[in-house]
Design a protein around this nucleic acid. Sequence first.
DNA 1: AAAATATGCACAAACGTTTGTTCATAAAAA
DNA 2: TTTTTATGAACAAACGTTTGTGCATATTTT
Lengths: 325, 325
Amino acid sequence: MTELSISTVSRVLNGKAKQYRIGIKSQQKVIEAAKKLQYVPNHFAANLKSGRSGTLALIIPSLNNPFFANIASEINIELRKLDYIVIISDSNENMETEKKEIQQLAARNIEGLIIVPCGDQWIHIKELENKGIPVVCIDRYFENLDIPYVSTDNFEGAFRATNYLIENGHKHIRCIQGSQSSTPNRLRVDGFCDAMKKAGLKNYEISGNNFTFENGYLETKLILQKENKPTAIFTFSNTIAMGCIKALREENIQIPKDISLITFDDHPYLDYLSTPLSCIAQPVSNISKMAVQFIYSKIQNQQIDISQVLLKPEMKLRSSVNKIN
Amino acid sequence: MTELSISTVSRVLNGKAKQYRIGIKSQQKVIEAAKKLQYVPNHFAANLKSGRSGTLALIIPSLNNPFFANIASEINIELRKLDYIVIISDSNENMETEKKEIQQLAARNIEGLIIVPCGDQWIHIKELENKGIPVVCIDRYFENLDIPYVSTDNFEGAFRATNYLIENGHKHIRCIQGSQSSTPNRLRVDGFCDAMKKAGLKNYEISGNNFTFENGYLETKLILQKENKPTAIFTFSNTIAMGCIKALREENIQIPKDISLITFDDHPYLDYLSTPLSCIAQPVSNISKMAVQFIYSKIQNQQIDISQVLLKPEMKLRSSVNKIN
DNA sequence: AAAATATGCACAAACGTTTGTTCATAAAAA
DNA sequence: TTTTTATGAACAAACGTTTGTGCATATTTT
């Protein structure tokens, strides 16, 4: 068609015309022909040769959780801007699934992985990194492991939320936590306990074991069984909060009249709940953008001095916390 | 390592041992060695040769919309079960983005595409199909085009919702619609108008032009400006409904005391809103599963007799519609 | 005018598999 | 024993690019 060799075409289309001194005329011929024929290069062949796949992977625990869906959306959009395609995997909060996904992804020569690890194991993740594939953790991460991460300052978030409750006169507070094996959860526990201790308060308890609706529902039911009900509940995720609200509603407990509620994670809907819910909002957009920046730097072998970052959360006060006494 | 040829290894690992009569012993050797060396085949090379990429694509208008996130999640999980990897793209409700994505995906030799088309153009989609890549539309689709689709029976959904309002004594109803270029929207309009006409009601109007929060907000504001306020509003999506609620709240209009509200699309949160919202719930899970089944059949060149399906929606009554007069 | 240099492009190897074919050897049939 | 058939595994081409190298031809320098 162009009567030019394959290599010439390849170089022009890859913008290496100058480097290989392809004449202007030839370039135009190639570009024209490519348009006319609607030529799309075969990525597989290209990648096979070049080793670059133009593909990144994102593993999150559940696309159904709006918090993660939000992250996925942001990351997806950011990476497209950089001309990467992203494969989104749903580990379903299941360690085995996560491991299998990573295996599969490795076979697809992904250039990097952004992951919200779903458990406390990290060997498989570290192994991937050892193969030279950059990894960045978001939201959940591993302290003392030299994998870059971007997350919220969970300690501070929990600390502030708890203090807010305390300032409003609450002395008996219950926490419903998520997965105990996750670092953010641990830090939230620490932040909560710290605030309570500093205030000299001892009437608190932490229960729960999962970032799920069910966990929130069940634990709240349990809390409501007891004689001595708390004046406030602090849930560690939006899913837990929803379960909690369901249980409270079933037992005819009013928020915040009977029990105050504050939660981690924001969502547009929270404004429209029967009682608009106060929360600790994580900087999802910035977390996503920074994670993308990290992975991109690593792919390009750029050194990044600081690669373990905690961003400040924002407390959004609505009307789910009552001032008492 | 195994002292066997590459081809033998390939065949064993691809389960074609029997077909090519590879001895049991050799098979074991290969499998052992593969394990020991943690061998992962290079998909690019494999796909280059075989033409099969093991990759499907999903294009949706916005991951941030819980309705689509839900679909994405379901489809993702279903396709993983079939050993496919799925690339999720966010067209951002933008036609140009959608076209570009399709181009990019084609270059990646996807074996099929499931898409929620974001506009009224379909040439680029048809072109993809003409290249031999199976396409299935979900939610939004094109009538009179022979591309398979799975969606909700939007006419019936709107018809039933409207009738429900009418049965509750509403005579002055306003609709806030989404993108007029989409088939589901058109059918919802039809369903709504049909129900009104059949009831002999003439006091209705349809406004709006987008499945967005802002559209819902703005149109509601406009509606509230008028002298003659409707007794009920019917929004055509969850996003529109949220915008509508915000506007109503700002103007101190109570649901359902002052104005009743019913919407398309369900969401767990709807139960916990200040006024739990009645809705037409789309069978998301079934839509997703059927779409996967369609695309899988087409990939395997199986004939499917019926490939354009509308599934029945479910009306979920909560408490946002008042009985009047 | 000859030599040196710059310019433009094609050749061919390589990437890591898959797969049709061939070839050797072992077992079965004649 | 010889011929036929079954069994097992290697050979080599091909997939569609990328990229190092080399060979002309054109241009500049001496």
